[in-house]
């Protein structure tokens, strides 16, 4: 009997919690604003299927690498094109979600 009640509370709390969390330090490649240069923080390899994880490594995804989102379809669902090093790579959102990034400080104006 308690289960639905608890669920409702979680449902209300979790988006706020997530938003606060993201705003702080763990933006992912999925949510990184377009054309904002950033650095790859950590990659949750465990969330990825093993061929995907390997291909991601082979394409040079690693901690400390410069990254930038170039294109993302507005309606959601479509893949993301990002620049990593001097290369452009397309990947799906589920993968982008596993890559946390920290935006570089904006140049002072």
């Amino acid at each position: 009997m308690h289960a639905p009640y608890t669920g409702a509370v979680t449902a209300i709390r979790s988006p706020r919690h997530a938003a606060a969390h993201h705003a702080a330090d763990s933006l992912t490649l999925e949510t990184l604003p377009r054309r904002r240069s950033a650095t790859v923080g950590s990659i949750e390899w465990a969330r990825l299927a093993s061929p995907e994880a390997r291909r991601l490594r082979e394409l040079g995804f690693d901690e400390g690498v410069a990254i930038e989102v170039l294109h993302r379809s507005r309606l959601g669902g479509g893949p993301i094109a990002c620049r990593i090093g001097r290369m452009t790579v397309a990947l799906r959102r589920a993968v982008a979600r596993a890559i946390s990034v920290s935006p570089d400080p904006l140049p002072a104006e």
């Binding site: 299927a49 061929p51 995907e52 291909r55 991601l56 394409l59 893949p79 094109a81 290369m87 452009t88 790579v89 397309a90 990947l91 799906r92 589920a94 993968v95």
Partner: peptide, 10 residues
């Protein structure tokens, strides 16, 4: 589905 990950050449 296997997903989609590709290098986009210049």
């Amino acid at each position: 589905s296997s997903g989609f990950m590709m290098e986009m050449p210049k």
